[in-house]
Design a protein around this nucleic acid. Structure first.
Length: 895
RNA sequence: GCGGACGUGGCGAAACCGGUAGACGCAAGGGACUUAAAAUCCCUCGGGGAAUUCCCCGUGCGGGUUCGACCCCCGCCGUCCGCACCA
């Protein structure tokens, strides 16, 4: 089980000296000894615990918390390395940093493990948490472990149940029937992602569509707010905002009522359209198979029922939808055209109208919609064009080449003729709003969304129980708050399919809180996305036993300043969290609407694949040989040559995974972290390679040597800046501050690959500088510059390679941690060059470079450029038309 | 089909607001040190031609704008991602 949370009053001091023994400087830096040493020292000193009463400006950096699947993978290493760089940098810049970690611990894999091996989900989950916590700690992350939470802990889900009840009271929870994917073998609801080619992912049985009464969060109540809020999220990737915009899918249109004449189950049908302007091109009305009119008619007409069944069977898999032909069934009834007395539109049951969008009914205008066009072509319905494209005469408009969906002017449309599409939409809406049918307006302007309410019911054991009770007398009754948490029973069986909670002998039997008569608990548990929709808020005060959140902690810490995670959560997790924050605001648990001010979506870790005679081979079982002709791979077991395949996301099936424990064991956490941040831009994929990480190991030794060499000639800790500096010392200081400035600029923009390049460049320059120094000539100025350079180097790499940096820092004579030392902010005046090397072009082609004083006037620079021999040669005596001087940038001589 | 992103050496990539294309790393080749290996250090490394100093070509392809284009505009080709009958 989790260690108890530390009470906030008992947090250790923020900084402290350490007394543990650190050996004399070895020639080679040994991460295997150093890393555990520093990890223990950090843990003992508690420097990464953040206090809620710290007066410094806050910074909340968070990486998406892991599901405790068993072991961490390289994707975690990359994710958490990035977050740790930000956390450590911001801490060095004087911020009060919150950098917590927890576990997204409910979910199906725990139940699958229980079914396969008999281990109780809780036992399995907590064992995994222990393993993964140890692995994360071996990475040297600057996490505040005192705030650790696991969503499967009753101390966490108790508060989630409380908020469910508050949402319920606030009208944000609904109970309604909905279509679900039902696995008849496992007897459970499947998420869409768990339906593969129409079959359950686990049982392989054909999935049925069932109507089930489910609990819903009314996320659609916030559709407009969730959409408009996206505009305020300036530090989110545009790609993610766009995906959310499309997912919410706002469209403006008109609800239109058509009268149905003659016999039938209804005298009226309501459609939703975004194109009311095309009403004079309408030639049919289409209904979804589950539309009430179709259902009513199907009860009396077996051939219609058979048609509907046939259509329902297809459409589960995406491949079917792609190829499905438009199908219709003429219901034999017709709708009256609202403006043409003698026109009646035939009504069809169709397979391409969706029941859960709009009203489940459309009017079809084949001339201006692809689907309607396909349908009309198949069933020989009229295709009447009513929009005339710009630059075309109405008499020349043809529908032979398919529908026209663009803008234009109306024709064939009576009172709309000559109007623009927008004006025509307004005109139709205004006219229908003024008319009444069955006592209601015939037209109502309406905004429609693709966004659906969030169904949170799951027929599973390992999730947060929904705190509701069903009473035959009182109906649905919330569990009283004093009875929370509704805890999961421990004694459950996984020997049969279905929900163990439902068949538990006693758990669900409970007295009705209202009337006291025997009643039943809700046996559905919540979707695990609920758990992850507010954990970032819980981290601000995980010690509060009385309430989910503490107002002061929420307003101090939220929003999260930098959230980092995979793009795969671009929609659901991030949208649900944004909804939850709004719900928490509405119920007094929070005071803001947007939980994540900054979002960064990092790329995947990929690796090449190896395919031998017997199948895929793991990188650990392959030896790579470098030859001039290229790379060849051989199996370690049978020595046979294996094919080097494509580079793909690390996956168990392709066996191209690398185990973080092994990498950390042989190269160290610093090397793994550094490699993850180097080479590739963080939003792109990074290719893991053995050669690359070996290169990092060499670089680490180089840093260690460089710091040692500089340390040999460095001034004592805290030595003052000498009054005068010789040219060598001045150049060294300049290089130091240039490197600092570059890393500062790139680290805040999360361009870690560039930070790595700057660090490499700096070490190269330091190597040259050291090579030029002979020991007997070191004066106070150079000694100062050497100390400054060595300390800057340690600081530069500290966010990424914290252990090595600590060792260097200690080696340079510091008693405190570099992890709690202040960042040596670059002196930007020192960085500025007095003389600038300006490229000179002739007609846009570079011919020479001239050295000019910074801020030299145009005439001077022009004179220098024209005096250049290379420029004169390129001119070949031709007259100069013009000289373009971009100050501080470039000169272009135009001939 | 709709929406979006991307395309630069052998490879991963840099290039700020339209201003020196290829920083930095990996791989490769050559050399120094060494009995040898490892480690370390130095040199070369987009293509072509003169053969270190010079010239031509080069950022998927074809046009355009500009003194100047990897960058902006138009049209293609290719790759990847998201959504998918949304009325």
């Amino acid at each position: 089980m989790l260690t108890p949370l530390v009470k906030s009053g008992s947090l250790p001091p923020n900084r402290c000296h350490f007394q543990s023994f650190w050996p004399m400087r070895p020639d080679r830096y040994n991460p295997r000894e150093s890393e555990p040493f520093w990890q223990r020292a950090w843990e003992e000193s508690g420097i990464f615990h953040s206090r809620n009463d710290d007066p410094r400006p806050k910074y909340y950096v968070l990486e998406m918390f892991p599901y405790p699947s068993g072991r961490i993978h390289m994707g975690h290493v990359r994710n958490y390395a990035m977050g740790d760089v930000v956390a450590r940098y911001m801490r060095a810049r004087g911020r009060n940093v919150l950098h917590p970690m927890g576990w997204d611990a409910f979910g199906m894999p725990a139940e699958n493990a229980a079914m396969q091996s008999g281990a109780h989900p809780a036992v399995w989950t907590y064992a995994n948490i222990d393993t993964m916590r140890r692995q994360l700690k071996s990475m040297g992350l600057s996490l505040d472990w005192s705030r650790e939470v696991a969503t499967c802990d009753p101390r966490y889900y108790k508060h989630q149940q409380k908020m469910f009840l508050d949402f319920y009271k606030a009208g944000l929870v609904d109970r309604k029937t909905a279509k679900v994917n039902w696995d008849p073998v496992d007897q459970t609801v499947l998420a869409n992602e768990q339906v593969i080619d129409g079959r359950g992912w686990r049982s392989g049985a054909p999935v049925e569509q069932r109507d089930l009464t489910q609990w819903f969060f009314k996320i659609t109540d916030f559709a407009e707010s969730l959409l408009s809020g996206l505009d305020t999220l300036e530090r989110w990737p545009e790609k993610v905002r766009l995906m959310q915009r499309n997912w919410i899918g706002r469209s403006e249109g008109l609800l239109m009522r058509f009268a149905i004449s003659g016999d039938g189950p209804s005298s009226m049908v309501e459609v939703f359209t975004t194109r009311p302007d095309t009403i004079f091109g309408a030639s049919f009305v289409g209904l979804a198979m589950d539309h009430p009119i179709v259902r009513a008619l199907a009860e009396k007409r077996p051939e219609l029922a058979a048609f509907c069944d046939m259509c329902r069977r297809t459409g589960t898999s995406t491949a079917d939808i792609e190829t499905a032909e438009k199908q219709g069934f003429d219901l034999g009834i017709a709708a009256d055209h609202p403006f043409l007395d003698n026109v009646r539109l035939p009504i069809y049951a169709t397979n391409f109208v969706l029941m859960d969008y709009g009203t489940g009914a459309i009017f079809g205008c084949p001339a201006h919609d692809q689907r309607d066009f396909d349908f009309a072509s198949k069933y020989a319905l009229p295709i009447v064009p009513v929009i005339c494209p710009p630059g075309v005469e109405p008499k020349d408009v043809s529908v032979a080449e398919g529908p026209y969906t663009g803008d234009g002017l109306l024709f064939n449309s009576h009172f709309l003729d000559g109007k623009t599409v927008d004006a025509a939409k307004d005109e139709i809406a205004a006219r229908l709003e003024a008319r009444r049918i069955d006592g209601a307006p015939q037209g109502v302007r309406r905004v429609n969304y693709k966004l659906r309410d969030w169904g949170v019911s799951r027929q599973r054991y390992w999730g947060c129980p929904i705190p509701m009770i069903h009473c035959d007398a009182c109906g649905v009754v919330p569990v009283p708050e004093k009875s929370l948490p509704v805890e999961l029973p421990q004694d459950v069986e996984f020997d049969r399919p279905g929900n163990p909670l439902d068949r538990h002998p006693t758990w669900k039997h409970v007295a009705c809180p209202t009337c006291g008569k025997p009643a039943r608990r809700e046996t559905d548990t919540m979707d695990t996305f609920v758990d992850s929709s507010w954990y970032f808020a819980r981290f601000t005060d995980p010690w509060n036993e009385a309430a989910p959140t503490t107002a002061s902690a929420i307003s101090n810490w939220l929003p999260v300043d930098q959230y980092i995670g995979g793009i795969e959560h671009a929609i659901l997790h991030l949208l649900y969290s944004r909804f939850f924050m709004r719900g928490m605001k509405a119920t007094g648990h929070a005071d803001i609407e947007e939980p994540f001010a900054g979002l960064f979506t990092q790329g995947m870790v990929v690796h090449e694949t190896y395919r031998g005679a017997t199948g895929w081979l793991s990188p650990a079982d392959v030896r790579i040989e470098q030859t001039a002709e290229g790379r060849r791979a051989f199996s370690l077991s049978d020595k046979g040559e294996v094919e080097i395949g494509s580079i793909e996301k690390m996956s168990k099936s392709k066996r191209n995974t690398v185990d973080p424990d092994e990498i950390i064991g042989s190269f160290g956490a610093d090397a793994a972290r550094w490699f993850m941040l180097s080479d590739s831009p963080p939003e792109g994929d990074v290719i893991w390679s053995e050669e690359g990480v070996q290169g990092v190991a060499r670089f680490m030794q180089r840093i260690w040597r460089t710091v040692g060499e500089l340390g040999n000639i460095a001034a004592p800790v805290g030595a003052p800046l000498p009054a005068t500096l010789g040219p060598d010392a001045f150049a060294l200081r300049k290089a130091t501050h240039q490197a600092l400035a570059k890393v500062e600029d790139d680290i805040v923009r999360l361009r870690f690959n560039r930070c790595v390049a700057h660090a490499n460049e700096f070490v190269n320059r330091l190597g040259q500088a050291i090579g030029a120094i002979t020991t007997d000539q070191v004066g106070a100025d150079l000694a100062f510059a050497a100390r400054e350079a060595a300390e800057a180097l340690a600081h530069l790499v500290a966010p990424m390679m914290p252990h090595l940096a600590e060792a260097c820092w200690r080696d340079l004579g510091h008693a405190e941690f570099i992890s709690s030392a202040a960042w040596p902010v670059a002196d930007r005046d020192l960085v500025r060059e007095d003389m600038i090397l300006l490229p000179v072009q002739v007609n846009g082609k570079k011919r020479d470079e001239v050295l000019a004083p910074r801020g030299a006037d145009t005439a001077t620079v022009e004179g220098l450029a024209l005096a250049s021999e290379a420029v004169q040669r390129a001119l070949e005596g031709r007259p100069v038309k013009r000289v373009v001087v971009v100050p501080g940038r470039i000169v272009n001589v135009v001939i």
